[in-house]
C-alpha cells in the first residue's frame, strides 16, 4: 500500500487519480500509524509553505515524515511537497522539514509569476549514469509546472533534472530513498505517469 499524506492542503485527489490509472493501491491518510506501515509515501501539495508546515505540525506529521524517511522508506515529494523537504523557504519565511540541505526561493527574473504551464526538463548526466527515475523519459521532455518558488539544494549531485524559467532550477532530485519533483507528474500526461511508474518500481 502506498500512503498519500493527507495534511489538509493541496491536490491529493489528482495524485490519487493518477495512481488509480496505474492500478496502484493507495490510502489517503493523515494517521501516523497508517503512514508508518506504508511501503512508500507521497507528499503532494499545492499551496503556500507557511500553511503547509503549520498543517504538518498540527497533525504531528513533521516528526513522522522524518522518521519514515530515515528508515529508508521510498518517499516522493511533489511541488510544495518537494519544497517542504528543504531547510527553509522564503515563502512566509518558513522553517521546513530540513531533511534535504538547502533553501527555497522565489523566481526573480521572469515577469510572469507563478510559472504555470509545460516546461522542459534537462536530465543531468553528472553521475555518468542516468537515474532509474527517468527510465523511458527522453531528455528535454515537457512536464507541467505550477509554482512561484523553487529549491536550491546545497548538494548539486542530488539534481537529476533541471528546468529553466528565467533562471535554471532543480526540477527533479533524487537522494537515497527520496525523489522530489517541482513539476506535477500526475498532471504531466504520459511522461508524468511514466515517472510515477518508475518511482513505484523502486518501491518493490
Amino acid at each position: 500500500m502506498i500512503g498519500l499524506i493527507d495534511y489538509g492542503i493541496g491536490n491529493i485527489g489528482s495524485v490519487a487519480n493518477a495512481l488509480t490509472k496505474l492500478e496502484i493501491a493507495y490510502e489517503i491518510s493523515g494517521d501516523p500509524v497508517v503512514l508508518s506501515n506504508s511501503r512508500a509515501l507521497i507528499l503532494p501539495g499545492v499551496g503556500a509553505a507557511g500553511a503547509g508546515m503549520k498543517n504538518l505540525k498540527e497533525r504531528k506529521l513533521d516528526a513522522v515524515i522524518k522518521k519514515i524517511i530515515e528508515n529508508g522508506v521510498p518517499f516522493l515529494g511533489i511541488c510544495l511537497g518537494m519544497q517542504l523537504l528543504f531547510e527553509w523557504s522564503d515563502e512566509d519565511n518558513t522553517n521546513c522539514l530540513g531533511i534535504l540541505k538547502g533553501k527555497v526561493v522565489k523566481f526573480k527574473k521572469e515577469k510572469n509569476i507563478p510559472q504555470i504551464g509545460w516546461n522542459e526538463m534537462k536530465i543531468s548526466n553528472m553521475k555518468d549514469q542516468r537515474s532509474k527515475i527517468v527510465d523511458g523519459i527522453a531528455d528535454n521532455s515537457n512536464f507541467y509546472f505550477v509554482h512561484s518558488y523553487y529549491c536550491i539544494p546545497e548538494d548539486d549531485s542530488v539534481v537529476v533534472g533541471e528546468t529553466e524559467y528565467g533562471e535554471t532550477f532543480a526540477s527533479l532530485i533524487v537522494q537515497k530513498n527520496i525523489v522530489a519533483t517541482q513539476f506535477h507528474p500526475e498532471k504531466s500526461g504520459k511522461t508524468g505517469l511514466t515517472l510515477l511508474q518508475n518511482f513505484m518500481k523502486g518501491t518493490q
Binding site: S14, A18, V146, H184, K187, G189, G192, L193
Partner: peptide
C-alpha cells in the same frame, strides 16, 4: 473528468 485525464 479528473479520473480520466492526466493533464490539468
Amino acid at each position: 473528468t479528473a479520473r480520466n485525464i492526466s493533464i490539468p
